[in-house]
């Protein structure tokens, strides 16, 4: 029996490679920025993966790289939103099926939150499908997305500390 996965961070990145939400579950103080870097740099590997396996409909991109104490996994939704997971690096085999399941849960959390009609309440009509609508749900103004992401993380076993801003 493999040891349980330890989730360090999850990042949602828009199709234009802008960050939507980066949520860190690490207990180490001052590590948040590191996961921003990890999320950003993993875009390199994700782009490489997409380019190498063109026309693939597979969302799961697999293990991207390992850096310091984190193993980074990637996922791309059909609408090109990228989800990046940073897991604690442990000397054990991580089953792809487990990771895919976590990714799907996060993806689900994402699009459920995106369906929030109040997100676009005051926006002009031409920006309904605007890119910034995707980004806005990650802002601290909207709590639903964070809550759903935290729920998934809790289910995976991460210790979620409530954000001071919330």
């Amino acid at each position: 029996m493999a040891p349980p996965l330890r989730l360090h961070a999850v990042a949602f990145i828009s199709p234009l490679n802008h960050p939507i939400l980066i949520r860190s579950f690490s207990q180490v103080k001052g590590d948040e920025l590191k996961y921003h870097y990890i999320a950003h740099t993993s875009l390199d590997v994700i782009e490489e993966r997409i380019a190498s396996s063109n026309k693939s409909t597979e969302c799961y991109l697999g293990f991207l790289y390992a850096m310091e104490d984190s193993a980074v996994y990637g996922y791309i939704t059909p609408l090109k939103v990228k989800i990046v997971l940073a897991l604690a690096l442990s000397d054990s085999v991580i089953r792809d099926a487990d990771i895919t399941m976590i990714f799907r849960a996060f993806y689900n959390a994402y699009y459920q939150s995106l369906a929030n009609p109040f997100l676009r309440l005051d926006a002009p009509q031409d920006s309904i499908t605007d890119h910034s609508a995707l980004l806005s749900q990650g802002s601290s103004k909207w709590k639903g997305f964070r809550r759903r992401v935290d729920d998934v993380a809790r289910a995976v076993g991460a210790v979620v500390t409530t954000d001071e801003r919330d």
Binding site: F63, A66, M67, E68, L87, D91, R95, D96, D98
Partner: peptide
């Protein structure tokens, strides 16, 4: 294949290890 891989034994290019050494 279904098992997946162990990230700590996944070989990466040497740049990663130099980076770790620097850290």
């Amino acid at each position: 294949r279904a098992l997946g891989l162990n990230p700590s034994t996944a070989l990466q290019h040497p740049g990663f290890y130099f980076y770790l050494a620097a850290g």
